[in-house]
């Protein structure tokens, strides 16, 4: 699935993930798993490191521009690109077991959260390692559940196209 319509659908999925995350937090739902990272990991495991990097870059840009956004334009994009490229390196042919998906998502979440922690420590800002750990584990659990659904949808779309 590589046509413009498919790319638009993926972009809308990234936008929906970001809007859902920021509005859930406004309704005091916390902690929320990193839904954007779950999508990035799904596409990275489906297509490999380059696709993971591009998905992460696109998703990070969405996070950078959807209000309230981040401090610096492009910062989230590069962090999520690194996480997507890393997740893609663990791609294997054939079915992937849920624990492996969770482990890959956990590693990607550690990259995203770890860079934020380093940035905070560099400016003597406080860090709650417990909250960071809970968010990483929550993202890994959400990925174990949602990644098979995303990959299944991609596979079904591919089957429809090529039979």
């Amino acid at each position: 699935m590589t046509g413009p319509a498919a790319l638009l659908l993926r972009a809308l999925a990234l936008l929906a993930a970001v809007v859902l995350a920021v509005t859930l937090a406004a309704r005091h739902v916390a902690p929320v798993p990193d839904l954007l990272l779950v999508l990035v990991v799904a596409w990275a495991l489906w297509r490999g490191p380059v696709a993971g990097l591009l998905a992460g870059l696109a998703g990070g840009w969405v996070l950078d521009v959807v209000p309230p956004g981040g401090g610096l334009l492009g910062a989230h994009a590069l962090v999520y690109a690194a996480a997507g490229a890393l997740a893609g390196r663990w791609r294997v042919e054939g079915p992937v077991a849920a624990p492996r998906v969770a482990a890959v998502a956990l590693a990607a979440a550690v990259v995203v959260e770890g860079l934020a922690v380093v940035r905070a420590l560099a400016v003597s800002a406080p860090v709650s390692l417990l909250d960071v750990a809970v968010r990483c584990l929550l993202t890994a659990s959400a990925a174990a559940l949602a990644v098979p659904l995303v990959v299944g949808a991609e596979r079904a779309a591919l089957r429809r196209r090529f039979g």
């Binding site: 809007v19 920021v22 509005t23 937090a25 406004a26 916390a30 902690p31 929320v32 996070l63 959807v66 209000p67 309230p68 956004g69 981040g70 401090g71 989230h76 959260e113 934020a116 922690v117 905070a120 800002a125 406080p126 860090v127 709650s128 390692l129 909250d131 960071v132 968010r135």
Partner: peptide, 17 residues
């Protein structure tokens, strides 16, 4: 009214909309 809360960050959210 707060309609969106940004990236939680290592010590809680820094931005809201």
């Amino acid at each position: 009214r707060v309609v969106a809360v940004g990236d939680p960050g290592p010590a809680g959210p820094e931005r809201v909309t």
